[in-house]
Amino acid sequence: MKRPLNGVRVIDFSWVGAGSYATKILADLGAEVIKIESTKKIDGIRLSPPFAGGESGVNRSGYFADRNTSKRSMLLNLKEPGAVEIALKLIEQADIVCNNFSAGVMDRLGLGYEAVANVNPRVIYLSMSMNGDSGPERNARGYGAMMSAITGFHHLSGNPGEIPTGTGTNYPDHIPNPGHAAFAMLAALRSSRLTGQGQQIDMAQTEAMLVTLGPEFLDWTVNGNDRGPLGNKDEGFVWQDVLPTSGDDNWISITAPTTAEWSSVLEVLQLDPELTPDADSTALAQAVASRSNHQLVAELQARNVPSAPVLSPAEVIVDKQLRYREHWRVLEHPEMGETLYNGQPFKFRHTEVQPTTSAPMLGQHTDEICETLLDLSPEEIAHLRDTNVLV
């Protein structure tokens, strides 16, 4: 089936989280994404659990697999001058080049924007370092948890008066940063199709994070108000919380936007209808703790009270809504066998936009790419491998 980005070629130097997910979006949309890797510097998430069958290995990481569906992998040791020449030959034939290295790394390798634009003026070149390629903090390095801290995102997490709790994961790596990067590349690709001109995109991941905090920054700069953490509350809602229910570590999330939903909560839990949202919540918590989370959700939703069970990983996989949306994809992997993958969180009416192939084995497509795109003979490929270029 034809996909939106069929015919688009991406040379992907990104690794670990945000960059890999940004290019995964393009790959699942149909772009030919060639992931540049090396045995001399293995992508960190290839070495990150969980591993298929509990057995570690560079081709067995579920984390890596989920970030790299629909891609091809090529070995290229960029420390070798000959590898840079090969990379530039690939870039000559590409529409997009992407990396999420620290500022200056690609320049030192001989693959900065000027070098790339010299061989391919129409290329879209995305860099997504932590603080961007310019400014006094350009050399700072960090991952999602650090970006959450320095942008103030962690300041808004947790309960009032307590230390920040964070989000339990590297939130910037999973949603805002890859999302902004993918959108930027798509917008630039559209512009390139209209004008024939390339673009350099210097995206600071911290700036992409700050976009998610617009109302909080406006409240501070305009009103001098530091909102601070709200716990499980939500501004403008009468009441909201996440509470334990019966069973082993089972929980429920309940929201009462108005007094009407609050009254329904009290009715379902058979509590005093005069109980106010700001009163001692012990009775409410005890009533919730005596109920099954799924049963209680059904009763609350029947009364139009927004609520949902907090699902375990096993429950998420069999969730009826995700099954109906065909979110989960099972793809065959050369080493891991049948493997479960996340689909994209959106669907198109007339085109497929979900993963087509499992994540690649390390260097799986090196020979194929060298033969089809670089016109190299098997003997030339073997020589480049022997001279530490294709490793």
Rank of each mutant, 00 (worst) to 15 (best):
M130C: 05
F348K: 07
V105K: 12
K233R: 12
V123D: 06
D319H: 08
A302V: 08
V119L: 11
V8A: 03
T23I: 08
L218H: 06
S56C: 10
P4K: 04
N232S: 04
S358L: 12
L271T: 09
L340C: 12
T255S: 10
G231V: 03
P257D: 04
P172E: 01
M147I: 09
P172M: 01
P277M: 13
G168I: 01
Q295E: 15
T195G: 05
R227V: 07
E299F: 05
T387S: 09
P136D: 09
G363V: 07
E368I: 09
L29F: 05
K35P: 12
T357G: 05
V97A: 11
L296M: 11
F153K: 00
R67W: 00
S312K: 13
P4D: 10
G132I: 03
M336S: 03
S14Q: 06
Q295A: 13
A52K: 14
N293A: 07
P215Q: 00
L109D: 11
H365F: 13
K41E: 09
L75H: 00
D234H: 09
T245M: 01
I175Y: 08
G343N: 04
M336R: 00
V305C: 07
A149G: 03
S134Q: 15
T151W: 00
N223Q: 05
P50N: 10
P81K: 03
S281W: 04
W220V: 01
S290I: 10
E380C: 08
R3K: 15
N68E: 03
T39S: 12
N59C: 03
K71T: 07
G214D: 10
R303I: 09
L331Q: 00
T151L: 01
G135I: 10
L186R: 06
G231E: 00
P49V: 09
E235D: 08
I25L: 14
V242Q: 00
M336K: 14
G44N: 05
W15L: 01
V116L: 13
A18Q: 15
L75W: 03
A117M: 10
L384D: 08
L90Y: 10
P121M: 12
M128R: 09
A149S: 02
D272Q: 10
M128Q: 15
D95T: 07
T151P: 02
F101Y: 15
Y125F: 15
G144Y: 08
I36D: 02
L384S: 06
E55G: 02
M130N: 08
N293Q: 14
A149C: 02
R323H: 12
L390K: 03
H294T: 14
Q364T: 10
A359L: 12
E261M: 06
C370G: 09
N304S: 15
T206M: 01
P136W: 14
G82T: 08
Q270V: 10
L5F: 14
K35V: 11
D202C: 13
N170Y: 14
H350M: 10
V58G: 05
S148R: 02
V8M: 06
P360A: 14
V84K: 06
E114P: 07
P178Q: 02
A94G: 11
I25A: 10
D278A: 14
A27Q: 04
E32Q: 11
M361K: 13
N131P: 05
V116I: 15
P121D: 11
P244L: 00
D95L: 05
A52H: 09
A187D: 07
L186H: 04
